[in-house]
Design a binder for these strands. Sequence first.
RNA 1: GCCCUCCUAGCUCAAUUGGCAGAGCAGCUGACUCUUAAUCAGCGGGUUGUAGGUUCGAGUCCUACGGGGGGCACCA
Length: 482
Amino acid sequence: MTPDELERARHRKLAKIAELGFDPWGQRFDDHLPIREVRELPVPEEGQIGTKVRVAGRIVLKRDQGRVVFLQLRDWTGQVQVFIGKKQVGDTGWALAEALDLGDLLGVDGHFGKTKTGELTVFAQSLTFLAKSLLPPPEKWHGLTDVEQRSRQRYVDLFSNPESLQTFLGRSRVVAAMRRVLADRGFVEVETPTMQAIAGGAAARPFITHHNTLDIDLYLRIAPELYLKRLLVGGMERVFELGRVYRNEGLSRKHNPEFTMLEAYQAYGDYHSMMDLTEALIVGSIEAIDGRFHRPWGESTVDFTPPWPRKSYADLLQEVAGVDIHDDAAIRERAKAAGLDPTRKDHDVVVSELFEEVVEDSLTGPIFVIDYPASICPLTKRKAGDPSVAERFELFVRGMELANAYTELNDPVLQDNLFHKQLAGQKADESMAKVDDDFVRALKHAMPPAGGLGVGIDRLCMLLLDRPNIRDVVLFPLLRPE
RNA sequence: GCCCUCCUAGCUCAAUUGGCAGAGCAGCUGACUCUUAAUCAGCGGGUUGUAGGUUCGAGUCCUACGGGGGGCACCA
């Protein structure tokens, strides 16, 4: 049967449903019980009548059995069997039952109980038609498997693949948990510009857009960092923003051009405060999902039981790459051995490339890597007594960078210098050091010493929900238009 | 941007060395008042991603294009 004929068959059913006096597109339907709660009701004794219930959902299976029809009805909490008997629902109800298709939305009033074979069931007394599905749903057993279609037609993926729905509901719990943890600690949520004249706060190529009335180009933000720190100057002592940032880079399993970032800033804190906060946020997220600290990740398991180890960048470089971070010749030699080209590059740039090439993939984590080379951290405060080291950490799990935090640089003179400094071997348009004079002016009004944190929500969800691809945790990932 | 690879019915998948395009689900018709991916009988459904080429003959081989996936590069 061609798609056209399949749709026509459903149009005929729609007409029949209308003829029976039902609205094929449904009406308000109050007080239905989530199916998960229905399934938890007491099952009546033999011969007893069960609790009266009202449910609503999508028909995902239909077993026609003469003068009885069994349905599986699914809502976003679960699935339950519905028993429709010709005698029990009357002529009109039965005529409706015969016109039902897989994918239709149906309301059922009936009694909860068990069939002879022990299946939890709603025994229908009356049916309410809620909406006609004009397109056939995917295969009832395999669901939708085509990766492209699952992303493009997420609506189909969600109703036909329960594990996909669970992933996105899990993501919502993670986000809600983070807001709760932050609110409990006195943070306030703010909204700062996503269209910015200077795309600062990170190193990435931005998207460009245009405002007609002002006739100026603007950038979609690559980070909210510099605006949130302005709020610290303004006296908002604990702020966070949970929102989308945009980076005009390639797509991969770990990269979508727009992704969700949490940034939080705490006046009078430092990067150690942020490590504590990071643990609290992720612990809160895990508790919101299922409370399991040993979490599956593909074939392996990640142990998120806190506290997580904290190791210095220099120590890890020594341990894994076998070189002293201060030994320039050894670093360059080791970089060459790793297939990198260290010529005409600043020492710290080579160190950074070597670290990424050799150390990062070995970090199974969770592990806080702390104390980064200062010159690659232009927004970070230097360690007291050692200006070559920046008070920064990154949280790694399974080779993925999940969080990045600093003791924030609040010295306006040093900040201004760093904005204008360009390290050899760093690309200009990709440097973090974009001059932002207003930001320097803000710092001149005194920003409190503070800790700041960024968390990649999508990647965190990948790890917590055991999904190997960022596309699996982004509802509508970027795809080439059809 | 580069390399590899995939695209067959609405969905899930077959098709030997280049030799008649198939099955299950879904759909349609019929049987069945306790089924469990219900079952049973019957019927329909295809420009094999698109356009060319090689060949007596192409789902299969070649070229280009489109879309997807994996990897590289990019992402400090």
